[in-house]
Amino acid sequence: MAVFDGVHYVISSSIQAEQRRELSGLLDLNGATSAPPHTHLIALAGSHTQHEHPGSLHVVSGMWVQRSIVLGKLQLEQYYSPDPTMIFSGIVACATDAARSSRPILIGNLSWMFHVDASGTLNNPRDSLLWYPVPRGGIPGLNDCEITVTNYTGTARDYLKKLIQVMGAKFTPSMSQSNKVLVAGYSPSPKTQRAVAWSIPIVNHTWLEDCFIAWK
C-alpha cells in the first residue's frame, strides 16, 4: 500500500509554484491524487486560510508530506499544522537521550520551552546560557559555594541569581564572611568595600559565564 493511499490533496496558492510542483510530484508518486473530493490542504506556514477551500479538510504543512515519505507511513496531521501559533509543529521532541541523526537537533531545557511558549518564537536554545541542559550536580568544587552580587538590578540580577544556582552554588542576597565570591557590576559599593576588607575575590558577570561555558 502506498503512503498516501486515500489522500485527495489540494495545494494552497500561498506556496510558491516550484514548491507546489515538487510537493505534487511527491504526493502523486506515493499514491495521492489531486482529484476531488479533497481531504487535505497543503499550506504555507502562517499564510493559509481555512475558507480558501471550505469543508472539513486536514490542513497541514509541506513537512507532513516529507516526514510521511521518510518514515514510510502517514503521519498524524495534528502534529504538522501550518498555523503560526503551533510553534512546535513538525518538531519531534524527546525528554531523554536523543538518537543519533544527520539532521540538526535543537537541544533545550524546560526554561527554553517555557520561553518559546510565552514568546511565540522558536529561538535557538544556545541563545541563552539558561536554556541549555547542564550536567547534574553542578560544577565540581562549586557546590554550596556562597556567591553574592552587587550593582546589578532587575532582570540582570535575576539572570545572575539563576546562573549561580544552576551551576550548583548558593546565591545569597546579603553578604557575609562566608561568601567565597562577589560578582560586581562596578565599584565601589558597600559590598565591594567589605569584600576587600575580608579578602573575598571580586569578579564581574563574565567570570560567571566563562565558568558556566567551561563548566569548571
Rank of each mutant, 00 (worst) to 15 (best):
M1H: 14
V3M: 05
V3W: 08
F4H: 07
V7P: 02
I11D: 00
S13W: 11
A17W: 14
S24N: 11
L26F: 12
G31F: 15
A32R: 09
A35E: 14
P36W: 12
A43W: 08
L44F: 12
A45K: 10
H48R: 09
T49V: 05
H51A: 06
E52H: 06
E52I: 03
G55Y: 12
L57D: 01
S61P: 03
Q66Y: 12
R67P: 01
L71N: 10
L71W: 11
L71I: 10
G72T: 13
E77M: 13
E77L: 11
Y79W: 11
S81M: 02
P84Y: 06
S89V: 07
C94E: 12
A95S: 08
D97V: 15
R100N: 13
S102H: 15
P104F: 14
P104H: 14
N109T: 08
L110S: 06
S111C: 00
M113F: 09
A118S: 07
S119M: 08
G120N: 07
T121A: 05
N124F: 12
P125A: 01
W131A: 00
Y132H: 10
V134R: 02
G138M: 10
G138A: 09
D144M: 08
D144S: 09
T148L: 01
T148E: 01
V149H: 00
D158L: 11
Y159E: 01
L160T: 06
L160Q: 03
V166E: 05
V166W: 07
F171V: 13
T172D: 08
S174W: 12
M175R: 10
S178A: 12
S178R: 15
K180E: 09
L182Y: 15
L182T: 15
V183Q: 03
G185T: 10
G185N: 08
P190E: 03
K191I: 09
A195Q: 03
A195V: 05
A197G: 04
S199T: 14
I200E: 02
H205S: 05
T206L: 03
L208N: 03
E209P: 00
E209L: 02
I213N: 07
W215R: 12
K216E: 07
